[in-house]
């Protein structure tokens, strides 16, 4: 399902080149829950951004469901991200001027999906996340946990094959963290969506079927 080869990312700064990811090979089978763990600055988020088609690698390849995503043109990559990938960020990532239901529907609207009741599905997903009575609420009117659940609903609107979550609970309290993780795991188990989660919380990682430990931009043994 997911296959990364010799994936490398370096950033050019005023002090010279900084290597964030230094040649990672990674495979995740379809339907699995993989956790990527590591300390801050280890390169987890950079790896996740390359896997999610958000940051172009300096070198190497990412193949998802048979598609070498970095071989695609800009627009085709955007379409791939839109239809095949779901992304949950480590911070509030909703557009503040749109209602929750608009935020959730937005990826489907951007992808010009004309085959379904987009707003109906957005409402259903929000209901599944326990936000059925918050459809018309604006992000600013919701708690951090509610916003994160809405972000998960948004990530699921186009039925992605791969759900990427980059420390989605890092700024949440313990109870909310458990609720969010339950939602993500439910998506993985019930819908069969492959889940790759970046975390520095070992307790969360222990539930994963595959744990990848990153240190210094490479996979630690």
């Amino acid at each position: 399902m997911l296959s990364c080869r010799a994936l490398r990312k370096s950033y050019v700064t005023e002090r010279g080149e900084v290597l964030a990811v230094g040649g990672i090979d990674l495979d995740v089978e379809a339907g699995r829950y993989a956790a990527i763990i590591g300390r801050s600055g280890s390169g987890k988020s950079s790896l996740m951004a390359m896997v999610g088609g958000l940051s172009r690698p300096s070198d190497g390849s990412v193949v998802i469901d048979g598609t070498d995503i970095w071989g695609l043109s800009d627009d085709k990559l955007a379409a791939f991200r839109n239809r095949r990938l779901g992304f949950v960020f480590q911070f509030a990532s909703l557009l503040p001027t749109l209602r929750l239901v608009d935020n959730v529907a937005l990826p489907a609207l951007l992808g010009k999906r004309g085959d379904a009741d987009i707003y109906g599905k957005a409402a259903m997903l929000l209901g599944r996340m326990g936000l059925g009575d918050h459809l018309d609420a604006y992000p600013g009117e919701c708690s951090a946990g509610e916003q994160r659940r809405a972000a998960i609903a948004r990530a699921l609107i186009n039925d992605p094959v791969l759900l990427l979550a980059d420390e989605p609970t890092s700024d949440l309290d313990e109870q909310t963290e458990i609720e969010i993780m339950d939602e993500l795991l439910a998506v993985n188990r019930e819908l069969g969506t492959t889940l790759v989660l970046v975390t520095h919380n070992l307790a969360l990682a222990e539930q994963a079927e595959q744990i990848v430990h990153i240190a210094g931009g490479t996979i630690a043994p």
Binding site: D74, D75, A78, R81, F87, L110
Partner: peptide, 15 residues
């Protein structure tokens, strides 16, 4: 950040 989010959820450059 907002433009990045739009791109992340699949907005094309034109959008």
């Amino acid at each position: 950040s907002e433009l990045g989010l739009l791109k992340a959820i699949g907005a094309r450059r034109g959008q």
